[in-house]
Nucleic acid binder design. Sequence first.
DNA 1: ATATTTTATGAACGCGTGTTCATAAAATAG
DNA 2: CTATTTTATGAACACGCGTTCATAAAATAT
Lengths: 204, 204
Amino acid sequence: MAAFSRKERDRQLRKADIYRAAEHIFALKGYHKATIRDIAKEAQYATGTVYLHFKDKDELYLSLFAEKLKGMLSIVESKMSSAKDAKGKLGIFIRESLAYFEENLDFFRIYVSEAEDMMTAEKSLRNTPSGKKFERYMADMVKQAQEEGVISRDFEPMQVLDIMTAILKSFVQRWFREGNKEKKSLVSMSGIILKCLLNGISEK
Amino acid sequence: MAAFSRKERDRQLRKADIYRAAEHIFALKGYHKATIRDIAKEAQYATGTVYLHFKDKDELYLSLFAEKLKGMLSIVESKMSSAKDAKGKLGIFIRESLAYFEENLDFFRIYVSEAEDMMTAEKSLRNTPSGKKFERYMADMVKQAQEEGVISRDFEPMQVLDIMTAILKSFVQRWFREGNKEKKSLVSMSGIILKCLLNGISEK
DNA sequence: ATATTTTATGAACGCGTGTTCATAAAATAG
DNA sequence: CTATTTTATGAACACGCGTTCATAAAATAT
């Protein structure tokens, strides 16, 4: 029993080594460009050893991801419970999530941009004449809105674009996920999206 | 001259065939899982023919992406010019973007989730006990907030989570992009993020 | 009709990488 | 100390896929 327990502990240590290495390599190169060889080398094991602990690359990645996120959720949730009203909880959720990100920067680079290679597409547009032109146009629009007192000056114009894009994407994603193609058109959601963007999720 | 022009036209037609096929296949399988063979087959050409029109897979993907987005931007921009104030422009931006998405569904499935295979990570959490538990916890928090009159009932609880995540991600992404690790901590942005989420980008 | 140039074809090549497995090393048991 | 079981190793294998290229077909010119 004691023997088993030590062996098991050893096993866990090895697994943790590999986890750490995987975290680092995945964060550095993204899922596709990270190789098992990379990870094994970083952990100072031979390639095959990784397979003594994980069924395959997918399992390694997914379990790593799940583990991290689980850790974050449990911390965030426990901190949230100290607030009594929902607004307080919301604030804590945001602050504690950010704190956890900051303590696990390596990892959350994955979360923020899985498949960062593909982002080239969006980036490449930003370097294109028509892309730059559009960005300028939008930035000007935002500045105008700020002068008109419609948009707060707390945000930089480019940041407003980021936020707009993020919210838009989130609604479209949700729409795809629900297969709403029959029920409701995307365009019909314009109103609520605009409201969400301008006034946030708060009442009134 | 006429001969040249017809040849050129033919060439463009072929290229368009391949574009269409690529759009379809990329949208269906994502960048990595889509193969040149797939695309060629869909376009009813031989594999090698694709390379008569595009240097490599990357160029095909990037130019497709740039072309589509360019088209969208020019339409959206032209429609926006008909509004005089910034708020009107904003509304048009959102509506026309959505309309363009809807007319190019195949393609925008790419845009919305490049590398959709990787999303498995986030999804897999949603199927995990602790993930489900957390979702319930957050949903309850949102409901509570709605009862307290803090969050509008216009949004479903789950949708609020989506929006929160999207905004959070957008801020973190920006932070990474700017390499602000020295200047400012992530946590210090909690306030503005909460404000953005609750009250949107509008003044006051 | 024949020769010449252009375009299309898809089998073959090269390479990267996930995964396995025969072999060696280490740990444990007797 | 020897035998046996467990664990580690990394070369070899398998496979998918981007890319090329010798060959064939089609188009064009003579």
